[in-house]
Nucleic acid binder design. Sequence first.
DNA 1: TTGAAAGCGCTAACAC
DNA 2: GTGTTAGCGCTTTCAA
Lengths: 346, 346
Amino acid sequence: MNRNPTIIDIARKLGLSKSTVSRALAGTPGVKEQTRQAVLDMAAAMHYRPNYMARNLTKSRTRIIGVVVPEFINSFFPRIIIQIQNVFESRGYSVLITQCDNSWEAERRNLQLMEDSMVEGILISVTSSGKNSDYYRTLIAKGTPLVFFNRSDSSVDASSVTIDDYKWSFFATEHLIYTRRKAGQERPRIMHFRGPLDIDLSNSRFRGWSDALAKHHLGPEAGDAVMARDITREEGYRLMSEMIGKGTVPDALFCFNDPLAVGAMKALHEAGIVIPDRIAVMGFSESQSALVVSPELSSVAQPLEEMGETAARLLLAKMEAPDSETVRVVLNASLNIRGSSDPESL
Amino acid sequence: MNRNPTIIDIARKLGLSKSTVSRALAGTPGVKEQTRQAVLDMAAAMHYRPNYMARNLTKSRTRIIGVVVPEFINSFFPRIIIQIQNVFESRGYSVLITQCDNSWEAERRNLQLMEDSMVEGILISVTSSGKNSDYYRTLIAKGTPLVFFNRSDSSVDASSVTIDDYKWSFFATEHLIYTRRKAGQERPRIMHFRGPLDIDLSNSRFRGWSDALAKHHLGPEAGDAVMARDITREEGYRLMSEMIGKGTVPDALFCFNDPLAVGAMKALHEAGIVIPDRIAVMGFSESQSALVVSPELSSVAQPLEEMGETAARLLLAKMEAPDSETVRVVLNASLNIRGSSDPESL
DNA sequence: TTGAAAGCGCTAACAC
DNA sequence: GTGTTAGCGCTTTCAA
């Protein structure tokens, strides 16, 4: 409980000045080897721990970086965060993590917290592409490097790591078309449960789906894309239950994310509608659930580990060279075909 | 990019001393209302933000608390953490989060990080009840309050929030017995996939299972409890596959956690063994997956939100009154019976 | 190679 | 009510 030892305590015991002790501890050249050793020994003996706050105050650094994510409950972001922590903690940084429950107001508060904590850099997956754009810009202008991962705000000039949501959405949709045609349906109706309008990648996924249908002259017709209120399992269940009630179950369903897909599958399952025979289902951003439902859910898998690590490295690069160029990394993803969309892989 | 304004800047502009500015900003009484207003206005105009590091250095506080959890990927801990953050951030604390991938060495490093960051309190769910006990004690002795949640180390004198793992495990097992007997099996064989030996609650769950069987004169026999190497879905799948291969599938299976249970269900499913007709399955610590598998998985649900909030409050109490007594809160849980163990709820 | 002194931005006695 | 001063623990000139 009693005060931690300081460099002054060490200096006194050794009859040195605190400057020398500081230098010895910091590894600054220009200290007699013998002296340095004595200091190091004494520090160890006294269980000396440097006071980061004091050090940071003089250097006006914090060695903290901030991570801001929309939510925490889907294990998607946590897995990315682990990698971010690995990169930064091994370099002596602490990582301040906040989640904002998909509320952009909360996201703004989190950013303020970051600012107040004087983080040296920010990694963010945005809750809304647009609502806080000005804040991102201000932060950057004030000298806090900021890097987007997964969900970016393309209107802001900052480095980012994403996947090509449009492309993979397009592929996923084409796969659904093929699988239906293989089953003999020449003109399958392929619906989309789409995500929020104010998330860039949600729009990309929507366009991917839409363009794929257009390419194959399959629409889309009005009403083929349904806006999900939340992007949760419950909402997927609700939407599909409604369609079942109205008798408008399509031949295939492409969802903005896995929870929506899994929820839809549940409703179908309960209604006795067989997947993939009657309807093929496809998710996005492969989650744990994909491998747990039966049949297993086809989905687009993102390289989470790589995304976290890349984002961390991009931020580090910006921190070390603030004037370095903005780079937008687009990682590869993969289309994992499983039982929910392919009878053969059952 | 240019340096943030300080109280000195404000003081200069206003022809005041920095002390007065400090007092005005801090809300200390003894400042003329007019002066205070002027300071506040100027601060706002200059976009003044207090420098926490400086403030903390003088007060020798950090306003940071640390959270240490075994892992991040099961959404179990993230959901608890959200509540912890709610409690502390609304009180002006930052929350430093670390996960240790179920490695006690990593946990130790995380604790060192906490120490170096001079956190004012620690909330921890231990990776191993035992390996770091001395460290916990040292931390507490040095004046850092520490509170266990979910997984505690009972050998350490510190407040904790848990559920009664023994009791719920006992109940869960009795339920399995009843459900089998209802189906006409007088002497069902009920196995257990047990968790690591060095986690207290894993042993509690084991004893709950074992005692329930003993009470009903059903063993357990040697070999009825199988030690899981990991507590993952993959391991559950592996263990059950092995049993299927050997033809030793029991009448019911009680698992240390949901991932093990879900993995086992997958193996059974693939082997065409019907749940719950041929075998009833039960998990623990209800996860998202429980509601996603079919049939849905019976499990013991913990009140995650309450656990997080309670843990936070206990820590807060210790921080405010370091000499206050240690309290061990045991929260209520619930046994959620679903299709995997009850034909009627299918 | 080492020491003295100034200062990071803020708070808190202690004066006036 | 307000200013002066000392100091939190450390780094970093500048001298010696």
